[in-house]
Amino acid sequence: MTDRPVDEMSFEEAMAELEQVLGQLERGDVALDASITLYERGAALKSRCETKLKEAEEKVAAITLDGDGNPTGLKPVSDL
């Protein structure tokens, strides 16, 4: 586990640390106080991953293609 702020992590970084946190919690070899801290960190990492995935999905959904399959620009997500 790192001390890096979760809101500065990429999706990949947050997912990797979340896997580490889950592994520690599943093993159950962590003191109760540390488990609570790990759980809180895991919840923040999960939220970060969900946010980054939603951002990526919105970018993909906003791409429009012309008749030849070439991107023509971005369409507001609200119009989809």
Score class of each variant (00 low, 15 high):
L38N: 05
L32G: 00
E26L: 15
A56D: 11
S78W: 03
K54F: 05
R48H: 06
Y39W: 12
N70W: 11
S47Y: 00
T51L: 15
E40W: 02
D79L: 08
Q20S: 09
P71R: 13
I63Q: 07
E57H: 07
E50C: 04
A14S: 10
G23Q: 07
E40G: 03
T37H: 04
A62T: 07
S47K: 15
E8M: 00
L74Q: 09
A14M: 07
T51D: 08
S47T: 11
E57Q: 14
K75M: 12
V60W: 04
L18P: 01
R27S: 09
L53Y: 00
R27V: 08
D29L: 15
T64H: 01
G73Y: 10
D3I: 00
E13S: 03
G73L: 11
L74V: 12
G67N: 05
G23W: 04
E17T: 02
A43N: 04
T37L: 08
S47V: 04
A44F: 00
S78R: 10
E58W: 15
S78E: 05
L22N: 15
G73K: 14
V6G: 09
L74H: 06
R4N: 00
A31V: 12
E19A: 11
R48M: 06
I36Y: 02
A44C: 04
Q24W: 10
E12S: 09
E40N: 14
